[in-house]
Simulated assay, not measured.
Amino acid sequence: MTFFNEILKNQILNVSFTSWFIAQALKVVITLLTKKKIDLYRFVGSGGMPSSHSSIVMGLSTSVGLKAGWTSTSYAISLVFALIVMYDAAGVRRAVGKQAIILNKILEDKHKSKHIQEKRLKELVGHTPVEVFAGAILGILVANLMI
């Protein structure tokens, strides 16, 4: 069996990437429902509902727990990793997004008076706690359905 065939049979990887894929697809659907427009960039973009970061790491962590056991070292490592990623998504990355909004506003004001061309900073970077929680629940559900 080739390396790639073995990778495709890895249930934990399949859960993780399926969780990410569903979260990203949901962002496109939610954008369609709330803004009445198809924005395919939402499929690859960060930020928004639900958090695909949370979904992928909780899919990973839950599937490791289901396969290796809730008391295993592998589960402990994956859970700590998931908690760090989710904290970062709702904390540091969200703060970066808020700073980008302020900096973009400063650049807008500057443009009005001086015609300087600056590229806008990406504002949708992090997640609200609700988006992180929704992504985590999605990852847990996908893992329980697939393992």
Rank of each mutant, 00 (worst) to 15 (best):
L26P: 06
S61G: 12
P129V: 01
R42N: 12
T31I: 08
K112L: 09
N104T: 00
I84S: 04
A23T: 09
M146S: 08
T18M: 13
V57L: 13
T71R: 04
F133E: 00
H53Q: 03
A143Y: 08
V130A: 12
S72A: 03
A89P: 01
G91L: 05
L138Q: 05
M49P: 01
V29H: 05
S46P: 02
L40A: 07
R120I: 00
N5F: 09
L141Y: 03
A90N: 00
Q24K: 05
L107D: 15
L124M: 07
N144A: 08
T34H: 12
E118R: 07
Q117F: 11
S19Q: 06
I77C: 06
A23F: 02
E131N: 03
F43I: 11
L8Y: 11
K98G: 12
E123I: 06
G65Q: 04
L145K: 02
G69E: 05
V29Y: 14
A136R: 01
N5T: 14
S63K: 09
P50E: 00
V130I: 12
G135V: 02
I140F: 06
V92T: 13
V57A: 11
V44Y: 00
N14E: 08
A143N: 04
A82T: 02
S113P: 03
Q117V: 13
V44S: 14
L121N: 00
S55A: 15
L13C: 00
V130C: 01
V80C: 14
A100W: 02
I22M: 08
W20N: 10
V130G: 04
A136M: 04
D39M: 04
G59D: 03
A143V: 05
V28A: 10
T31N: 15
F4M: 12
M1E: 11
I147F: 12
I12P: 07
I30L: 13
S46K: 08
A25Y: 04
G59E: 04
A95Y: 00
K105E: 08
H127I: 10
T18P: 09
G48A: 01
Q117L: 11
L66D: 14
V28S: 05
A68I: 02
L40H: 02
S63W: 11
L8S: 13
F43A: 15
S51R: 07
K110T: 13
I101L: 12
K98F: 04
V80E: 02
S74F: 11
K98I: 13
I102K: 15
F17H: 02
H111K: 15
K9L: 05
V130F: 15
L33A: 09
S74P: 12
S52G: 12
G97E: 05
F133D: 00
F3L: 12
S113Y: 11
I7K: 11
E108A: 07
S61D: 00
M49C: 02
F43N: 08
S19L: 00
I137E: 03
S78F: 14
I140M: 03
L83E: 13
A76H: 10
V142A: 04
I30W: 09
V44R: 05
E108M: 10
G135A: 08
S46V: 06
L26I: 10
A95T: 10
K35C: 08
S16Y: 02
N144F: 14
H115K: 10
L141D: 06
E118P: 06
K119Q: 14
I7C: 05
L83Y: 10
T73R: 13
I102P: 07
K67S: 15
V15E: 01
G139L: 01
L141T: 14
G139T: 01
H115F: 14
